[in-house]
Amino acid sequence: MDCTSGRVVAIIVAVFAASVAHAQGVPEPSGVWQTQAGDARVKISKCSDGICGVVVSLREPIDPMTGKPQVDNKNPNPSLASRPIIGLPLFSGMRPAAEGKWSGQIYNADDGGTYASSITVTGESTLRVEGCVGALCGGETWTRVGR
């Protein structure tokens, strides 16, 4: 191998190593996450050029008042108020805002509102989910379930 070929190989190896190190630097949000209260689990996956989140399980999947599966009964849209909570999309197409952070809107089935939101990977098994109405903001930390 001549000197020029050696440099080309060294550059390719360096670029590959840097991209692997970058990919390992910030954990991905893809996976199943439990809400802070432990009442629901949400599956986050990549969709289009962002991330999506869907409710995959509930601590109490059956409504004690009706004996039937929990539904989105706080939704102000009557045509959506009977859809099941399990399978409910909480957010779709949240877009990257910074490394390890996505922004968009999130639906809150507890009150039927949709809020400006951000999701930030804060550790290998923690995710910060925040929502705002005007200047009032709040959030919670979700924990990764399994791996």
Rank of each mutant, 00 (worst) to 15 (best):
40 A>W: 03
91 F>C: 00
60 E>R: 01
27 P>V: 09
64 P>Y: 10
32 V>C: 09
113 G>W: 13
107 Y>K: 07
2 D>Q: 07
144 R>E: 02
69 P>N: 00
125 S>C: 12
92 S>R: 08
28 E>M: 00
131 G>C: 01
4 T>N: 00
115 Y>G: 03
100 G>M: 05
6 G>C: 01
113 G>C: 10
34 Q>H: 09
95 R>F: 02
122 T>F: 04
42 V>A: 00
52 C>Y: 05
109 A>D: 08
105 Q>T: 05
68 K>N: 09
47 C>P: 11
97 A>V: 00
110 D>F: 14
67 G>M: 11
1 M>C: 05
103 S>N: 10
90 L>N: 15
45 S>Y: 14
120 T>Q: 15
125 S>N: 15
64 P>A: 03
36 Q>Y: 12
8 V>Y: 13
126 T>Y: 03
39 D>L: 10
73 N>E: 09
1 M>Q: 00
56 V>A: 06
136 L>Y: 05
124 E>P: 04
49 D>P: 07
75 N>M: 01
73 N>W: 00
118 S>E: 12
18 A>I: 07
62 I>D: 02
83 R>S: 07
2 D>M: 14
135 A>H: 15
129 V>L: 11
126 T>H: 03
138 G>Q: 03
59 R>Q: 06
60 E>W: 03
33 W>C: 12
1 M>G: 09
140 E>H: 02
51 I>K: 14
122 T>E: 04
93 G>D: 04
94 M>K: 08
129 V>N: 01
57 S>V: 00
80 L>A: 04
41 R>N: 13
33 W>H: 14
60 E>K: 02
124 E>A: 07
42 V>M: 03
117 S>G: 07
12 I>D: 03
21 A>D: 11
42 V>K: 07
81 A>V: 07
17 A>M: 09
131 G>V: 01
133 V>T: 00
27 P>E: 11
56 V>L: 00
59 R>Y: 12
34 Q>S: 07
61 P>A: 11
124 E>K: 03
61 P>F: 06
86 I>F: 12
143 T>S: 11
114 T>I: 15
6 G>W: 02
104 G>R: 12
110 D>A: 10
139 G>E: 12
60 E>S: 10
36 Q>K: 05
129 V>K: 14
130 E>Y: 06
20 V>Q: 06
101 K>W: 07
64 P>I: 02
125 S>Y: 01
106 I>A: 10
35 T>S: 11
14 A>E: 02
122 T>D: 08
113 G>E: 15
110 D>P: 07
16 F>A: 14
125 S>P: 09
106 I>N: 01
80 L>H: 05
83 R>L: 13
143 T>A: 04
146 G>W: 10
49 D>E: 15
12 I>C: 13
64 P>S: 04
64 P>R: 13
112 G>A: 09
61 P>Q: 02
14 A>V: 08
12 I>W: 05
32 V>N: 11
107 Y>S: 11
23 A>T: 10
126 T>A: 09
97 A>P: 13
137 C>W: 02
123 G>L: 06
140 E>S: 12
96 P>S: 03
92 S>M: 06
63 D>Q: 07
71 V>A: 00
62 I>T: 09
44 I>K: 14
145 V>N: 02
136 L>F: 15
56 V>Q: 06
131 G>E: 08
103 S>P: 03
93 G>Q: 03
48 S>V: 08
49 D>F: 15
32 V>F: 01
114 T>V: 15
142 W>I: 05
76 P>I: 02
